[in-house]
Design a protein around this nucleic acid. Structure first.
Length: 571
RNA sequence: GCGGCUGUAGCUCAGCGGAUUAGAGCAUCGGUCUACGGAACCGAGGGUCGGGGGUUCGAAUCCCUCCAGCCGCACCA
């Protein structure tokens, strides 16, 4: 279904077109009226006529009576006011639309590469953003009707596995598994490293073990598998705790591409892109230079004939296009890797793997900072485990709930605290513009007042509370809206904007835009809630207000859910 | 040195395909209301939108330049 915005815009576009073909009305929501169209100003320049004169021409050509009125304001803006009947009809349509106005798109295969922790290493704050943003985008794409192929590009290969496997053997398999299964990955990794540094014979064993791993020695592979499986199982626990949809099936780690690396080299060789430089096989994509101004290589095969991450990344692009048939590939990876990924894409294009019709994009994000505005670290200066972070958030949410005397059982309260904590952490991450660094402050994130996840959950819970208290169910599907109070009108304008906000956030891969929208909607709702009593109203007025509550609640619930945040009925 | 990102109220952040008085949250101050969950609502103060140029009738938004911070720039990922 077309959005209200689209309906108004296309009607205006016809009038703009008749004055000067192809001009954009530049329609925006407005504080002074319902929408304002700013396009006259640009058009008047092109026509060489005064803006007000042009505005008169547009309004003269405009057929808008069934939607509302348009007035010329200021130097030549068009102030658009919707008629109550039109707005009422729009709301009624939404009331009977479970997607709340968001159209589905023709399905495409969208590969989203996100989270990417390392085997036998703890998940820490550094993985938070990729995981949360990736999960939100995956949910948004799925809701839009696309087929999302999640790819968890875990670090499961490379020289560190020599020492990790040797350490596993030293500990004894069962003891190692016990350590790993309780999620104490850091200790395991640290001990392996310490031995590697201190013990030359261990170092030598590790080196041989890497060779055995790479040459496919079955017992070594089996031990490697143990490490990977244990880690993946642990990751799944973290994802469950975060309420992130990634599963073990989405884990397609670096090792997956091992068998494709030679083909990558062959392809590049055949395309004449490969150049030997200092013994390494490189591609020099155009436009990249190093600090001396010399061409910057993407090293495909190292001097020692081993493959680096560039080769794996190239193989991944190639695989995703040719085997997964991806039409869109997104990398939810930190901003520092921007240049590397740009080089990978450039080479993939030159090699002919990536055609122009495929959207292949790096979706970069900024750092999580501590209160001191430096990289987020624990008091001891170590990286913070993702689970500890969540556990602390849950603990604080739980103690907030304890103070409020909710009458919940400890178990139920704990569950609610978990939901609130997840909402707090995820919303804080998603609601700032991706590229910016943000400051991680649990107290602010968990606050019920302000632009937070819990505030949005609370707004939803209040709405549900109204419906619980309603003694006789009221049928809402045939509601007529009068929208007499300004708060009701403003709320209605907010409701109809959901599909616009959703599509815009998805198009530009910026979940924060959806967050901003939802917060604005929640604020419109509380103003309405304060001014327009629902339960004490009766008849058509109550029905109308209930319907506004229903639409708001559904929008909040849906909007939060595509961000990966749930909305409890009570809190 | 080259490149990228960031710099908007005391604090945390929106706005940046130019447009009518630069928005919100928190904090501060002042009101409302026996309140359908007050975890609320309404209002006020507070900003030369990092500095300087330019384009434009009009710039936080586009262009140039400078400053500050963070990050990347050959065999780790």
């Amino acid at each position: 279904m077309p959005t209200t915005y689209d309906l108004v815009n296309s009607r205006l576009a016809v009038a703009f077109d008749s004055v000067l073909a192809g001009t954009d009305p530049v329609l925006r929501p407005s504080e002074r009226c319902d929408y304002q169209a700013n396009g006259v100003m640009a058009m008047s320049k092109m026509l060489g006529k005064p803006p007000r004169e042009v505005a008169e021409l547009v309004v003269g050509a405009l057929d808008f009576a069934d939607m509302g009125t348009v007035e010329i304001a200021g130097p030549g803006f068009l102030n658009v006011s919707l008629s109550p009947q039109f707005l009422s009809n729009q709301l009624s349509t939404l009331l009977n639309n479970s997607r709340l106005g968001v159209d589905t798109a023709p399905s495409e295969n969208v590969v989203i590469d996100y989270s990417a922790p390392n085997v036998a290493k703890e998940m820490h704050v550094g993985h938070l953003r990729s995981t949360v943003i990736g999960d939100a985008l995956a949910r948004m794409y799925r809701f839009k009707g696309h087929t999302v192929i999640a790819r968890n590009h875990v670090g499961d290969w490379g020289t560190p596995f020599g020492k990790l496997i040797e350490h596993l053997l030293d500990m004894g398999e069962d003891a190692a598994i016990a350590t790993l299964s309780i999620g104490d990955l850091d200790t395991f990794y640290r001990e392996a490293n310490a031995k590697f540094e201190a013990d030359d014979s261990f170092k030598e064993r590790s080196r041989l073990r890497v060779v055995a791993l790479q040459t496919g020695d079955p017992e070594t592979r089996r031990l490697w598998r143990v490490l990977v499986d244990q880690s993946v199982a642990y990751f799944s626990e973290v994802y469950a705790k975060l309420d992130v949809l990634l599963t073990p099936e989405d884990v397609v780690g670096e090792s997956y591409y091992n068998d494709m690396l030679q083909a990558v080299v062959d392809d590049l060789q055949e395309a004449g892109l490969l150049v030997e430089s200092d013994g390494a096989l490189c591609v020099f994509p155009e436009g990249f230079v190093n600090r001396d101004g010399d061409p910057l290589p993407l090293i495909v095969q190292k001097r020692d004939e081993g493959f680096g991450y560039a080769a794996t990344d190239l193989a991944a692009v190639r695989d995703r296009v040719t085997n997964v048939a991806a039409q869109e590939i997104l990398y939810i990876v930190g901003a520092p890797q921007s240049q590397h990924l740009e080089m990978v894409y450039a080479v993939a294009r030159q090699a002919g793997w990536l055609s122009d019709s495929i959207r292949c994009e790096h979706v970069p994000f900024g750092n999580v900072l501590g209160k001191d505005h430096k990289m987020f670290k624990s008091r001891e200066g170590t990286t913070v485990k993702l689970v500890s972070l969540l556990d602390e958030a849950i603990e604080r949410a739980d103690s907030q709930l304890r103070e409020r005397d909710t009458g919940l059982t400890p178990e139920a309260r704990r569950e609610l605290a978990t939901s609130i904590a997840r909402a707090a952490v995820k919303y804080a991450d998603l609601s700032t513009e991706r590229q910016r660094d943000y400051v991680f402050e649990l107290d602010r994130m968990l606050a019920f007042e302000g632009d937070t996840g819990p505030y949005l959950q609370y707004a939803y819970a209040r709405i549900e509370s109204i419906f619980r208290k309603l003694e006789v169910p009221v049928a809402l599907d045939a509601t007529t809206f009068t929208l007499a109070e300004p708060q009701a009108w403003q709320l209605a304008l907010g409701i109809i904007e959901f599909p616009v906000a959703f599509d815009s956030a998805l198009r530009d891969l910026v979940p924060h835009r959806l967050c901003t929208y939802l917060f604005d909607l929640a604020q419109r709702f509380t103003a309405f809630y304060d001014a327009c009593p629902v339960l004490s109203a009766s008849g058509d007025l109550q029905r109308e207000r209930l319907a506004l509550c229903r639409l708001t609640g559904d929008t909040l619930k849906l909007g939060l859910s595509v961000l990966g945040i749930d909305a409890p009925e009570k809190m």
